[in-house]
């Protein structure tokens, strides 16, 4: 899929189920993707589509009644390959933050209100390298704060003495304390105002580039994704329906859901005319048969109702889960291609 042959993170057929009283909820339903070194992958989808569950599963933070059913998530480190999903609790605790780190939405209350920033950063260092002398830890913490453009006196402050943007920066500083290979940022800017949002995002991008880490950026904000991500994955009902390079995703989305998503965005050209998405997001408790998107899809076929579509990879390195392209690939039904894609030149070349 990506040009780079050796992905940092290789996720295969990841499945997470929540066992609720109302039944089993397949929140992540067979997700596979690769993450290249230094790559920024944007992950979009409506609320409840499984974005955050996917992030939690990679951190192994799924709590009962949720359970990781199957799959693998292999991180390549200097010490070798680690399958996150098979590590025991203690080993996973060591891996968190040092190999794969999670940056929460920090503007709210991701920071402990009764501890100074300093203590919260030292806690993290202490947990991973207890032998490190305190002075060195402090130096590390200061350096991390500096790299997110905060002064060192933030160390002595309590979270309530910081602004929302500063708190988010502290969360980023904590996230990069141990130079992880993969950073997952779960809507890191959604509680900030637009100006601060942009600045914080710039900082996140810069430190990620400096570290050479890969970034999974979860969010709703398509504009932000367009600015930051190399590739964008669109998630629907627990599955990746399309992964495409950012430019292709915004100009020629393949999957009908991705198309609808992009069309719903305001543009300069079609001022005042927005196309909403018809229908409602499906309940994960009772998914439609076949392709989960078929009840809302304009191009629905019989096959879509019967069986889930295969994942098709296009020659230009895009992945899409839809019969339209499965058929196209086999060179069948030219009429359907005609009907299927508003941008027939892309993805239909086979």
């Amino acid at each position: 899929m990506t040009a780079n042959a050796m992905p940092v993170l290789r996720v295969r057929d990841l499945r997470v189920t929540y066992y609720t009283d109302a039944g089993r909820v397949a929140a992540v339903n067979g997700v596979s993707f690769d993450l290249a070194p230094g790559e920024r992958l944007g992950l979009v989808g409506e609320s409840g589509c499984g974005k955050s569950t996917l992030a939690l599963a990679l951190m192994r933070m799924i709590k009962p009644p949720g359970r990781i059913e199957s799959g693998s998530a292999v991180v390549r480190t200097a010490q070798g390959e680690i399958d996150l999903l098979t590590l025991d609790e203690a080993a996973m605790r060591k891996v968190r933050l040092s190999v794969i780190s999670y940056i929460p939405q920090g503007a709210m209350n991701a920071l402990n209100p009764v501890l100074r920033v300093e203590q919260q950063m030292l806690d993290a260092l202490q947990a991973h390298m207890p032998q490190m002398p305190r002075r060195e830890m402090l130096a590390r913490a200061e350096a991390a704060l500096e790299s997110v453009e905060l002064s060192r006196d933030v160390l002595r402050r309590y979270p309530h003495e910081l602004s929302g943007g500063m708190k988010q920066r502290v969360c980023i500083a904590i996230g990069i304390l141990l130079s992880p290979r993969v950073i997952i940022a779960d809507e890191p800017t959604s509680a900030l105002d637009v100006v601060v949002q942009r600045q914080v995002m710039e900082t996140l991008r810069r430190v990620q580039e400096q570290l050479g880490a890969s970034l999974i950026l979860i969010g709703h904000d398509m504009g932000l994704m367009a600015q930051v991500a190399h590739r964008v994955a669109v998630m629907y009902a627990g599955q990746f329906v399309e992964i495409s390079p950012v430019h292709a995703m915004f100009t020629q989305p393949l999957h009908p859901y991705a198309q609808a998503l992009i069309q719903s965005l305001p543009r300069l050209e079609n001022r005042g005319v927005f196309h909403g998405l018809p229908g409602m997001a499906p309940s994960l408790l009772r998914l439609p048969s076949g392709c989960a998107f078929h009840p809302r899809c304009a191009y629905v076929m019989d096959a879509c109702r019967r069986e889930a579509p295969p994942t098709v990879s296009t020659p230009d390195g895009r992945l899409v889960q839809c019969y339209l392209y499965a058929a196209a690939k086999e060179g069948e039904s030219a009429a359907m291609q005609e009907r299927a894609s508003p941008q027939p030149q892309e993805g239909m070349r086979a």
């Binding site: 951190m59 933070m61 605790r93 060591k94 891996v95 968190r96 933050l97 040092s98 780190s101 999670y102 929460p104 939405q105 709210m108 209350n109 991701a110 920071l111 402990n112 209100p113 009764v114 501890l115 203590q119 806690d123 993290a124 947990a127 991973h128 969360c171 904590i174």
Partner: peptide, 26 residues
């Protein structure tokens, strides 16, 4: 259920440290 308890776990802290300094303390 607060975010700071979850984030403490994301940081890879020992459960006892999370229990006392992040949970009980608040």
């Amino acid at each position: 259920g607060e975010d700071y308890v979850t984030f403490a776990e994301h940081k890879g802290l020992d459960l006892s440290r999370i229990f006392y300094a992040y949970y009980v303390r608040n």
